[in-house]
């Protein structure tokens, strides 16, 4: 029961985040949504792993947290670089 509610809630959060990611309107909104989506995935996997008694999944969630962070940083960095180019082009 607790499991169902928790997972349901997490999925709902993810859905909302996804909606924001799809809606935009700015790239930064999408990144934000993606970040949230990622953290919730981490939690979801941890919860699922503990409740189905396969603790090995927790490793997975650590890893997801890392990937999520790196992903966000990467997006930011590259977007910044593109903006720079665009500025150069505009000038």
């Amino acid at each position: 029961m607790v499991l169902a509610i928790t997972i349901g809630a997490l999925l709902a959060i993810m859905l909302l985040a996804l909606a924001r990611a799809l809606a935009g309107p700015k790239v930064y909104d999408r990144i934000l949504a993606m970040n949230m989506f990622g953290t919730k995935t981490v939690l979801l996997i941890a919860v699922y792993g503990i409740f189905t008694d396969s603790p090995s999944l927790v490793d997975l969630s650590i890893f997801y947290a890392l990937i999520n962070f790196i992903g966000v940083i990467a997006v930011l960095k590259f977007i910044e670089r593109v903006e720079e180019y665009d500025e150069v082009v505009e000038r």
């Binding site: 790239v27 995935t41 996997i45 997801y64």
Partner: peptide
């Protein structure tokens, strides 16, 4: 950029599905 980010989300989601389907290594 959005396409690629959405692809990242898509990947995460499919990884979740892999978790549900008992494929921890693959999800990883």
């Amino acid at each position: 950029f959005s396409v690629v980010m959405l692809f990242g989300i898509y990947s995460l989601l499919s990884a979740l599905i892999f978790v549900v389907l008992d494929a921890a290594d693959v999800a990883f």
